[in-house]
Design a protein around this nucleic acid. Structure first.
Lengths: 220, 220, 220, 220
DNA sequence: AATGAATGAGTGTTCATTCAT
DNA sequence: TATGAATGAACACTCATTCAT
């Protein structure tokens, strides 16, 4: 966690309209994604943010803390959205589709953070790494529970463990940063829908499968 | 490319039974995967390999060259295997299943290399990065062409671009290193089959879809 | 150019009375002259200056920058002095004598810098080398223009190109560092006068020469 | 001195027509002049000479020995030529002119060696440096003795010490390598004559001077 | 709230030389 | 005569972090 609470506090404000911590995070996210965390010096970050080193160390405990804050922001946002989709009304497959499509879109909307995410996790201090993993696990578990719910209800095939489906899906999502280019011809929305379609197609019950929970009524 | 051709040459042999370059690559692969490329010093590598720094620089132009050699090895092997599966006899879905399952198993069999692959690509020099990307592209294109073949024949649904399916699949495969633990309860073979099953399930033609090539007989 | 402007800034001051950059330059000049630029490590310099490596790199971009600064100082000083002599009042031969004698004396007064000058120019980066050469050329051209002025007025013989005379003279001056010892019996002033005398003696019109501008009166 | 006598021995011969030591010296001279002694690795030299490291260490004790051999060759040659000119028939000024002009021409003919000479002397081992300096001193003394002879006879002015004139002259000569370009418009011969002319002009007795030995007859 | 000079341990890399063959 | 693998000490330079101001 960062040294000083960031947010709507008057502290750290500048004429530019954004706070010093925000500008540091924005610069760090861009540079870490472009060059990698280790190839970016603290000096690079503070220069890009237009502040001095001392200022950075006033708001962040360390370079690692800066990195962790990037993870925290992205995770918090995506976890919240997933929780919203999970709690929404409507048939489960539609909610899962919406959630799966949405995480693709938010990953693209925060592409720098996404790139950093999978690439630099191992560089976090142990403590930060543990915290990020725990949060990520909660996220995955919520997603998995949606799949399991569908498997129990017979909406989804249940011969592939929900955990595998989850990790398979997020593997693809995490890799977005390595190839997606905003100037390509595919929009984030289209891509999200393709990905979500693939997920749900993979979960469709097998044509000839029988005897799965909740399917009996269909046979009538 | 490395400074000196490695292989069955008598040079570089040691009592240990393996050549100096081989021991360096083995040590590097292990350490780069464990701690990350940038957090591993050349000193760490040579100590683990039991040689001196000078010896390393006799065989490799740079630390980057060591890294690139790891990429080259893995890519060469996987490309060869994919080509073999693609050229094999049998129905296309079965060949695709075999190839998709196999890449999961070889990724796990070379888990260190796999971890390094997606995590450290951005640290390669531009030249090496270009070379690796080109090789990777060839690999993806071969895989994609198998999917396209199935789409043309009607064996696979064709409303999701084959390129998306390919990149989605390898996204998952590349992420294996971040979570797979050899001591887990799932064997590489099982995991490969789950992954390949998900791939093929995602490609199954939609139940209600009609008018796709090769489906006419069903319509009767 | 050095990373940080040096001069009367309060920054970098120490109890010793001299700034960190000044002490570094003094140590570098002494050591580079004694042992040669390449045989002197940055560690040697910072130890002699009583600072740490980090401090050196705070003020100078590189070892090369340190070397270039030594050139810049000497050149700036000598160029200024030559300009002053050239612009002074009095007969041209006397001004040339004064300038020629002075450059010998300032070269001796900065003997370490002089030794370094001709010996290590080729070790400067291309960019720095270009800059030094350009400045040196300006210096030579000013000196040469004085000689040409004397040749036009008939004060000097004109059958040896002024450029040759200039380059011949400064060749000797640049070599001072290789043999002059401050503890020798000849003072810098005496030596400067000998050198300047040789220069002017070499430029005296030949006894039998005729038809040169400004010599008409002799013909009577 | 080099490890093995070089010359007309059959050893070291190659199909190319030149011996291995000769090719090493030629390569070393060129590279040391181009890049500097310290910036040229033994590997660079042996590659340029088309031999291996082991071969070089067979013929030369060290990199320093290679450098020293370059000095030795040039010095031996120039000392011999000066001795020949000094011992020749004819008026002293003419012999001095011929010697002074000749050293310019041989310096240009061996421009790489000349460049190395003044630039890298300080990098020789103490032992080699001492030897080179001693040889150089003998050379200077012979040259100086010619000037002194002229001063005693009244052919040259004697109010500038012959040692100063000598060192002044060779300063210019040693600097030739820093500026002379073979593709320039001035031939070595022309340049040699200009330099020698400047030397003799500088030694001409002053018009009004009297009381110098051998001048009495002029006063009549 | 912010500065920037200074630290000091650590980095990748070079290279003259040796020596078993 | 000649090879080239291997050594090991040295090199220039970087950088996250501290701290007096």
């Amino acid at each position: 966690m960062a040294r000083i609470a960031r947010g709507g506090t008057p502290a750290g404000r500048r004429a530019g309209g954004s706070t010093v911590p925000d500008r540091l995070l924005a610069a760090a996210s861009r540079l870490f994604a472009q060059r990698g965390f280790e190839s970016t010096s603290v000096q690079d970050v503070v220069e890009a943010a237009g502040v001095t080193k001392g200022a950075m160390y006033h708001y962040f405990r360390s370079k690692d803390d800066l990195l962790h804050e990037i993870y925290r922001r992205l995770l918090t946002m995506q976890t919240q959205r997933l929780a919203d989709f999970a709690a929404a009304e409507g048939p489960l497959p539609e909610r899962l589709f919406a959630a799966a499509s949405d995480v693709v879109q938010t990953s693209i909307a925060n592409l720098d953070d996404s790139v950093i995410f999978f690439r630099s996790m191992h560089l976090l201090t142990n403590e930060h790494q543990t915290r990020v993993r725990a949060e990520r696990r909660r996220y995955h578990e919520l997603f998995r529970s949606l799949i399991e719910e569908g498997q129990r209800s017979g909406a989804f095939r249940d011969d592939i463990p929900a955990g595998i489906v989850t990790i398979h899906y997020f593997g693809s999502v995490h890799q977005l940063g390595t190839w997606y280019r905003p100037d390509g011809k595919m929009t984030p929305r289209e891509l999200g829908e393709y990905y979500a379609t693939l997920l749900l197609a993979g979960l469709r019950p097998e044509p000839g499968a029988a005897g799965t929970a909740g399917r009996e009524s269909d046979g009538a």
